[in-house]
Design a protein around this nucleic acid. Structure first.
Length: 425
DNA sequence: TCTGGGGTCCTAGGACCC
DNA sequence: TCTGGGGTCCTAGGACCC
């Protein structure tokens, strides 16, 4: 059976590398990127990893390392998204089939008969990313997504690989590679699966690859079955799922300060509705179900934990912020309890369908729908022209107290005319 | 004192129907 | 004096990913 060449490009320490493009001072020193509220570490430079800083570690635990030269940046997602698009563009020069998997990873298909060999083609791609975008990357090449993930693991872990690992069509290499990869590092094997696999004596990726697939299906479910097939070089996971239309849209934030003030909480919820519906309308979709959640910190030892979620299903799917806000307000009053120190609010839109395919029956108020459609597109246009948040719903502005901290945010170099990098020459 | 935000898919269990 | 079986739809929750 003919096999396709499935490659993966994965940016090294993506957010830190992206910050370094615009601030050369950050090279060669320990740098981390902090999540919203500057609370958690979501990217680390090699130097930061060497200081034993862990992924997802709370920042306050490593703050003392600032004395040893640690530098923090607040996450700047608009900037990262922009650079990510350029990353995809570069890869499109090398492959006609590029499928972006995450902000820093792309799968792509290569021609098996690549003239100078797949490995040197991989090196060329890596060099081009470094030259054009100043982004270091690892390249994995094999015949399945899961194997290419394994290749990438080795490309990063073993400098001798030169950052490119190609095992396409090489059975011996595949076995050697999988032998040195712990099963916990296999794409799709999380904590729970790893514990269960270890308990039946499977600790390496190779042992997993040799595990009976139907037995695995029975004990672990369909996903591990697929993983095993993929580890054996079979392309099972769909190459190009449609990422352009989300099936659920989430908007949530930790609050800058814990509070039980209803106005503040509702104001944060209104802002979530705004962001979520813009995204919904941009993909030409409507949603039938709104869920809302409020919660206190899971980690606080002194406070009682409270998490409550409620949802509402509309008679007709909608993308109208005002309708969603009204529903959110009702849900909020249903689940709100005073005297808790709330730390986070969130909403989720589900039951999403394309605007075109929605069928309305004779009771649907067409006039009102048209009126709101015009209002929504006006809001979107004004926000596009004058910047995000230029026009807001009343509730949104009622309180700013929930806004989160980001004290070390780099400028939005590529997304805002006011924040372009200044080059002196 | 201080622990993110955004997704996907699968599964189990309840409601309801015949 | 004894508790069908199969199907569908929905929801909540879990596991995983970055």
């Amino acid at each position: 059976m003919h096999k396709r060449v499935i490659a993966l490009a994965d940016l090294n320490n993506a957010f830190v590398s992206m910050e370094r493009i615009f601030d050369p001072k950050l090279h060669g020193i320990p740098v981390v990127t902090a999540s919203n509220n500057d609370s958690m570490i979501i990217a680390r430079s090699y130097e930061a990893k060497a200081l034993n800083i862990k992924m997802a570690q709370p920042y306050f635990q490593v703050k003392h390392l600032e004395k040893q030269g640690l530098v923090a940046r607040s996450a700047n997602f608009p900037l990262y998204a922009n650079i990510s698009n350029r990353f995809v563009s570069v890869l499109e020069n090398f492959s006609n089939h590029v499928s972006q998997y995450s902000i820093d990873e792309c799968f792509f298909i290569l021609n098996q008969k690549e003239i100078n060999g797949l490995e040197s083609y991989g090196q060329l791609i890596k060099k081009t990313l470094l030259k054009h975008l100043a982004l270091p990357a690892g390249i994995g090449i094999s015949s399945s997504k899961t194997l290419s993930k394994c290749c990438n693991y080795a490309a990063k872990k073993y400098p001798a690989t030169g950052g490119v690992v190609n095992i396409f069509g090489d059975e011996e290499k595949r076995k050697r590679l999988l032998k040195v990869i712990p099963v916990s590092e296999v794409w799709g094997c999380g904590k729970a699966t790893t514990i269960k696999l270890n308990s039946i004596g499977i600790t390496s990726a190779l042992e997993l690859a040799n595990f009976n697939p139907s037995k695995a299906r029975e004990l672990f479910g369909i996903n591990l079955f697929k993983t095993i097939k993929e580890l054996n070089g079979n392309e099972v996971i769909e190459f190009e799922p449609d990422y352009s239309v989300s099936q659920s849209i989430i908007a949530s934030r930790s609050l800058g300060e814990k509070t039980d003030d209803k106005t503040t909480l509702m104001s944060s919820i209104a802002a979530h509705i705004s962001r979520a519906t813009v995204k919904l309308r941009n993909q030409n979709s409507v949603s039938k179900t709104l869920s809302l959640s409020i919660q206190t910190s899971k980690h606080s030892k002194n406070d009682a934990h409270y998490f409550k979620q409620a949802s509402f299903t509309f008679d007709y799917p909608t993308s109208d912020s005002t309708k969603l806000l009204k529903a959110a307000s009702k849900l909020f009053n249903k689940i709100y309890q005073p005297n808790y120190r709330y730390s986070k609010t969130g909403i989720m839109l589900t039951n999403i369908s394309s605007k075109k395919t929605v069928q309305n029956d004779m009771f649907f108020d067409q006039t009102e729908s048209e009126k709101n459609k015009v209002l929504m597109s006006t809001i979107d246009q004004l926000n596009n022209r004058y910047g995000k948040g230029a026009l807001k719903m009343g509730t949104e502005s009622a309180s700013k107290k929930w806004n989160s901290q980001s004290n070390w945010r780099s400028p939005n170099y590529t997304g805002s005319w006011d924040e372009l990098a200044v080059v002196k020459c």
